[in-house]
Amino acid sequence: MTVAFPEATEPETQAAEAGRLLFAGPIEFLKGVVAMDGLPPADRVEVCFAGRSNAGKSTLINALTGRKALARASNTPGRTQEINYFSAGDNLYLVDLPGYGYAEAPVNVVAKWQALLKSYLAGRQTLRRAFVLIDMRHGIKQVDEEILTLLDRSAVTFQVVLTKSDKVKAADRDRVLAQVRGALQKHPAAYPEIVVTSSEKGQGIAALRAIIATMA
């Protein structure tokens, strides 16, 4: 069966306000985790952000929360080497996962945090949704397919968030969307909606806030 994977639209007023209030509330860095036994208690819903190194995860989290330096952003691929937990009120964790794919780090270090990433995605019972960030300039690559397949096998619902849309020419936009939609057809865990964002321009931020608020 073919799934359309439409773009998320601007949320209705009530949903937009729920998202605004959630992210206007207290959001704090809780801890960085380097091993599964360091995870905080599974006592609330959590959503995570995954993506290739330098896909814009930290920048997106900062845009969502309206805090410039809550998550550490870097131009160096692979800087985030921990699972970083942020508490959003009393009912939600936001989780910034280590980037996958290319990283400027020793091979053994990369292997360690990639194993941690896979263990988390496969074994966290309170994980409600994984937001997989895809740089809109590049679309879905083979290294993304590996994570999407892992999410399928782990029965973790994931939703694709296209980042850096402001850096894509209008002539290329439809081509990239078609490539992403085609790639998602073979992934049963894919949520049937794509969120197109630009952290710099604010595009899609209200929609993503509203989506997360429905789970919190």
Rank of each mutant, 00 (worst) to 15 (best):
K167F: 09
R137E: 01
G38F: 07
D90Y: 12
G182N: 02
E200M: 09
L127N: 10
V156P: 09
K118P: 02
Y93Q: 05
D135A: 15
L21S: 06
I147W: 00
T149H: 08
G66L: 09
Y100E: 04
F5Y: 04
R209K: 11
V180G: 05
D135C: 14
V33P: 00
I134K: 04
A105T: 08
V109M: 04
K141S: 14
S58V: 11
P41H: 10
A24P: 00
T126G: 13
V156C: 12
P41M: 13
D90Q: 13
K201R: 08
V45W: 11
Y100D: 04
D43F: 15
V3A: 13
T59S: 12
Q179M: 09
A88R: 07
N75W: 14
E10S: 11
R129H: 04
T197F: 02
G204T: 00
L177P: 10
G202H: 06
I61T: 00
L116C: 11
R153S: 12
G32R: 05
I194N: 00
S119D: 05
R173T: 05
D152V: 12
V156W: 05
E82F: 10
V33W: 00
V156Y: 06
A111L: 01
R52A: 13
K141H: 08
R153V: 07
R175H: 08
G32A: 10
V168I: 07
R175S: 06
A189N: 01
R67Y: 10
V195E: 05
N54C: 10
R209D: 00
V95N: 06
T59I: 06
Y120K: 12
L64T: 00
E7I: 01
L151A: 14
F86I: 09
L117N: 05
R209V: 05
P192F: 11
L184A: 02
G66N: 06
A171Y: 09
M36L: 13
R44G: 11
K186Y: 08
L116H: 06
G139K: 10
V110A: 07
R67V: 06
A103K: 02
A24F: 00
E12V: 12
Q81R: 05
G101N: 03
A171F: 10
G89C: 03
D37W: 04
V110F: 03
A103F: 10
A69T: 13
S119F: 10
L70P: 03
A63P: 01
N62S: 06
L151I: 15
T214H: 14
R79S: 15
L94C: 09
Q114H: 11
